[in-house]
C-alpha cells in the first residue's frame, strides 16, 4: 500500500501590514507559492496567498481582508513568480498593488472592461 500524506489545508488570517513579513517567513521555511488570488465579497477584497510544502503536501493560505482603496505592497521582491498573479489581481479586480517587479499596467489580458470582477460591476448590476 502506498504511503498517504493528506494533511488538512490551513487558513491563516493576517493583517495587511504583516504581509511581507509573513511571506518572507514562509519563503525561508522553503515553501513554494502555489497560487495567489483575490475575491470581492461584500465590499471588501479578500486576498489569498497559498503556500505549498512539497514534502508534506500541506497547503497554507494567508488571507488578507482589505478595503477597496487600500494599497497592497507587492510580494514580487520576495517571490518573483508572483508577477502574473499580482498583475491578474490588479487587472481583473482592480486591487491597488504597488511596486510589482514587472508591471503590465493592466495590459496582461488586455481586456476592454475595467476590473470586471471588481466593485464597479457590482454597482452597474445593482
Amino acid at each position: 500500500m502506498a504511503e498517504v500524506i493528506a494533511p488538512e489545508n490551513i487558513l491563516e488570517e493576517i493583517e495587511l501590514s504583516d504581509l511581507l513579513h509573513v511571506v518572507m517567513t514562509k519563503k525561508k521555511e522553503g515553501l513554494r507559492l502555489s497560487q495567489a488570488c483575490a475575491a470581492y465579497v461584500d465590499g471588501k477584497y479578500e486576498l489569498s496567498y497559498s503556500f505549498a510544502d512539497d514534502k508534506t503536501y500541506q497547503l497554507t493560505t494567508l488571507r488578507v481582508v482589505i478595503d477597496v482603496d487600500a494599497k497592497v505592497p507587492s510580494i514580487t521582491e520576495i517571490v518573483p513568480q508572483a508577477i502574473f498573479y499580482e498583475n491578474e489581481m490588479k487587472e481583473l479586480f482592480g486591487v491597488n498593488i504597488e511596486m510589482i517587479a514587472l508591471d503590465y499596467n493592466n495590459k496582461l489580458y488586455r481586456i476592454e472592461e475595467e476590473a470586471p470582477f471588481g466593485p464597479k460591476k457590482e454597482e452597474n448590476n445593482g
Partner: peptide
Amino acid sequence: HDLGCAGPVARASGIKADMRKRGY
C-alpha cells in the same frame, strides 16, 4: 522551486512533488 514550477517540469528538475500522493 523558486519559480514555483509544477508537474513534470518540476519533477524533471528533481522536485519530487506529485499531487496524486496527496491522496485524493
